[in-house]
Design a protein around this nucleic acid. Structure first.
Length: 259
DNA sequence: ATGGTAGACCTTCTA
């Protein structure tokens, strides 16, 4: 089972590019982030034509996440538990049915910049809620994949120019600590487990020629429960997609599970 | 030195 995660930066502005990648990569499951539309505006037909079942947790203009799966989606949950006042659409979870069911979440973790504002506090609060929810899901002791744009640079090796990021929310000690806390509870970073070579970035900013200078960072991650890690066969980062016409600033990350 | 780009949308916000 190929499970992809990709921050598409507007699914409608990017539809041609996204569909082209789906046809080439043929993921069984895909977690999309930053779809930037409400549920009714999600281009469902384009993906149904490719054989996908769809769950959407959308929002006007900002954020928005989706799950696409060739196998039926069950037990769909919209929104991250823990704060009923949170209106930002950043979390969507479902169980991929099959002989070996896998629970998958599409995660768009808050950016958190600038760090001296309530945005950074929101990021850390959101990470605390994600930590609590992940702990609850881990208790099921089932294959679980938490995939998405974490907006966290885990280590200096995950940036081409680490010094550029010292004042950025993505690289703050608190952000990195909260990310490590997910790993301490037993979640495995699929990329590090399967490959781990440095320089494997998933994001290059549109500005200041970041792609041309390879000023990249690894911020899109797939975290696996022990039961999912046992099924891990490989991970690939589709770096070349960043050089396509009208690219997202993120590229797809694909996890292959023996499920 | 505080740029530079992209997307959604009402003119500025988010990234």
């Amino acid at each position: 089972m190929r499970i992809a995660t990709w921050n598409v930066n507007s699914v409608n502005a990017r539809l041609e590019t996204v569909v082209r990648w789906f046809e080439a990569a043929q993921p069984d499951v895909a977690c999309l982030q930053e779809i930037k539309c409400v549920d009714e505006k999600f281009p469902a037909e384009a993906f149904e034509r490719l054989g996908y079942n769809i769950a959407v947790h959308g929002q006007k203009a900002y954020n928005g996440v989706a799950l696409l799966s060739k196998a039926p989606l069950e037990d769909v949950r919209r929104g991250l538990p823990g704060d009923d006042t949170d209106e930002q659409a950043r979390y969507l979870e479902a169980v991929i049915s099959g002989p070996r069911p896998v629970r998958v979440a599409s995660i768009y973790l808050p950016n958190g910049n600038p760090i001296a504002t309530e945005k950074f506090a929101y990021k850390l609060g959101w990470m605390a809620r994600l930590n609590a929810h992940a702990r609850a899901l881990m208790a099921f002791e089932e294959p679980l994949v938490l995939a998405g744009d974490y907006n966290v640079i885990p280590e200096p090796r995950d940036a081409e120019f680490p010094k550029n990021w010292v004042d950025d929310a993505l690289f703050q000690p608190e952000s990195r600590e909260a990310f490590r806390a997910l790993k301490w509870m037993g979640l495995t970073d699929a990329y590090l487990e399967a490959d781990g070579a440095p320089g494997a970035y998933t994001f290059w900013d549109y500005q200041a020629g970041a792609w041309q200078r390879n000023n990249g960072i690894r911020i899109d991650h797939a975290l696996l429960s022990p039961q999912a890690a046992d099924l891990l066969q490989g991970v690939s980062i589709h770096r070349d997609v960043r050089s396509w016409d009208k690219p997202s600033d993120h590229v797809p990350l694909v996890v292959e599970l023996d499920a």
